[in-house]
Computed example of a mutant assay.
Amino acid sequence: MAEFVLVAGAWLGAWAWDEVVPELRAAGHGAHPLTLSGLAEKQGVPAGQQTHVRDIVDEIERLDLRDVILVGHSYSGIPVGQAAERIGDRLARVVFVDSNVPADGESFVSAWPDGRAMVEGSIAENQGFWAPLTAADYDGQGLTGEQIARIVGGSTPHPGASLTEPAVLSRPLGELPATYIKCLLDGDTPNEDVVKLLTSEHWRLVEMNTGHWPMFSQPHELARILLAAT
């Protein structure tokens, strides 16, 4: 029995996994979707990137979880990757879902040079938060109109400090047992840093023919891939 800890990306909370969690539990595993500080039902809680790392580690320790499969989507791959090394032998595998990955001393915005000005501009204009995407931003990502409305309706502003603070890693990320899920409608190949990590014997690549939010567009296929990681 594995214990899945699921962390969605920017603007989203635990609710984003509502269609994935039942399938993991039906297969006999634990499933623990987590909302990071400052988002969804935790709006108003001050949060930086290290706050989010602690959110994840604290939840795993609070529940005394073992054989953890730690799942990070999009932005959340950065705190998830840091938390994965900090939980030690509790970790069975880390799964990055079309996500950013942490690099020691680098932040989310430093790893995304083309969008840095846009993200920092949004943070400056929105009282320290990255404003959620609009419905039009989800076009071409394999989502129905109903699914887009659900994402947009549930999204909350993302704490800007979590995007600008640097990651802290004590050992190479390639040493962790990991699966990287690449969603092909969001680009044919992973980013260069992920391509390098995939040369590690501990990492493997899985592709999904969908967009950047597979927990909405293909939740059953995503659950199948996560179960294969056990």
Results as ranks from 00 to 15, higher is better:
Asp18Met: 13
Met215Ala: 14
Ala40Gly: 04
Ala8Trp: 00
His52Asp: 04
Val194Asp: 06
Ala40Arg: 06
Thr179Ile: 13
Val194Ile: 12
Ala103Val: 15
Ser155Val: 10
Ala117Ser: 11
Arg204Asn: 14
Arg62Ile: 04
Leu63Thr: 06
Lys42Met: 08
Glu192Met: 07
Ile225Gly: 00
Leu34Ile: 05
Tyr75Phe: 12
Phe108Asp: 07
Leu39Thr: 11
Ser170Ile: 12
Val57Asp: 00
Pro159Trp: 09
Phe96Cys: 03
Arg66Val: 05
Ala92Cys: 00
Gln50Thr: 01
His220Ala: 12
Met1Gly: 07
Leu222Thr: 03
Thr230Ala: 14
Ala223Ser: 08
Ile123Asn: 09
Asp114Met: 15
Leu198Val: 07
Pro132Glu: 11
Trp112Phe: 14
His158Tyr: 11
Ser99Thr: 03
Ala135His: 14
Gln141Asn: 14
Ser37His: 09
Arg204Thr: 11
Thr35Gln: 10
Val206Ile: 14
Glu165Met: 12
Val5Glu: 03
Arg54Ile: 01
Leu133Phe: 13
Pro172Leu: 14
Leu163Ser: 11
Met118Ser: 13
Gly38Tyr: 03
Leu12Tyr: 03
Gly153Thr: 03
Glu61Gly: 02
Phe129Val: 11
Asn191Ile: 01
Thr164Val: 15
Glu3Met: 12
Gln82Ile: 10
Pro159Val: 08
Ala47Phe: 05
Trp203Val: 00
Val94Phe: 01
Ile123Cys: 12
Ser76Asn: 05
Asn209Arg: 03
Ala47Tyr: 06
Leu226Lys: 04
Val45Phe: 02
Asn100Val: 01
Asp64Phe: 00
Val97Pro: 00
Leu39Glu: 08
Val194Ser: 08
Phe4Lys: 07
Gly13Phe: 13
Gln50Asn: 04
Ile225Leu: 11
Leu185His: 06
Gly187Cys: 12
Val45Ala: 05
Leu6Ile: 04
Asn191Arg: 09
Asn100Gln: 04
Gln49Val: 02
Glu192Phe: 10
Tyr138Met: 08
Gly160Asp: 05
Ala8Asn: 01
Ser76Lys: 05
Ala167Met: 09
Gly211Thr: 04
Glu125Tyr: 09
Val7Thr: 07
Ala8Asp: 00
Glu146His: 08
Ala136Gly: 12
Ser37Cys: 13
His29Asp: 10
Gln147Lys: 05
Ala111Gly: 12
